[in-house]
Design a protein around this nucleic acid. Structure first.
Lengths: 141, 141
DNA sequence: CTATAAATTTAGAATTAGTATAATTCTAAC
DNA sequence: GTTAGAATTATACTAATTCTAAATTTATAG
């Protein structure tokens, strides 16, 4: 009786696993500093696995999100973007060119506590987004 | 020669103004504590102005947003929601029931400064969203 | 007063994003 | 090899939002 392991390619009975397609989707999101949309993830995933379908990319992103492996970043415009989930971090969006970058804010443990207190919610996570001008756009050239 | 004033209903040459339709949309967003979607705003606006079109609601929301009178709140799921822009404040979303509430976090002036420093962006605004369990959902009843 | 110009509104088409469905495929357990 | 259950695929569908072109509105210029 073989023990179930969670490596890529194993499916079937029991708990859900990191399948080949999910692995591909995860690799796409984790490689590179971009924050791709689902459509961009699909295009990149196709290069590694031409048969993968659009629906699977969405399903995989949802799975990876709830598994805590990727994060969804949504702002009002267009499509959601996906970000590798390494450590807790924050986002800055350029109001001029739309660039999205990660940054780390110290003292977020205290921040999350303060936010929980102010909102009376039991905090699970906190997301901080700064809107402003990126270094490129703030320097008129 | 009459001087242009910016009261509702005046259009034409020169700068854009708060038209009647935009005023209706603004009123809808400002009345009530809900955070309506564009569709909900449309439904409510229709009661005040039956001829208003869907596109105008979207256009108005975009205008009001960039004018700083309403705020768009987007999370990954479904439609964007709109919030009156009174003072700077933050949002908490219940991961269980989807409730969205406003709350105020003290010390955000320093926070925005720290975020600008960490991101190297010129800050315009900062948005903090807490995901967690609302008071109702955290109390199993 | 009349003509003009610029922005806005309207209605509906078009686009985009994301979800649902049903059939098929895959893999581990037996 | 058969079976069971989850995952994948392809496609259809729904919902959200933007675009387009024509008509409207109204402040200014003539």
């Amino acid at each position: 009786m073989r023990k179930l392991d969670k490596s890529a390619g194993k499916r079937g009975f029991g708990e859900p696993v990191l399948t080949r397609q999910r692995k591909v989707v995860l690799d796409v999101v984790q490689s590179g500093d971009t924050h791709p949309t689902a459509g961009e993830v699909f295009a990149a995933a196709r290069k590694m696995m031409p048969a993968i379908s659009f629906a699977t990319v969405y399903n995989s992103l949802r799975y990876l999100k709830q598994a805590g492996l990727v994060r969804e970043v949504a702002f009002g415009n267009g499509a959601s973007r996906y970000d590798r989930e390494t450590d807790r971090h924050d986002h800055a969006i350029c109001s001029e060119c739309g660039t999205l970058v990660d940054f780390d804010l110290p003292g977020t443990v205290e921040l999350i506590r303060a936010a929980a207190r102010a909102s009376r919610f039991k905090a699970e996570s906190i997301h901080l987004t700064l809107v402003g001008l990126c270094p490129q756009c703030r320097a008129p050239k």
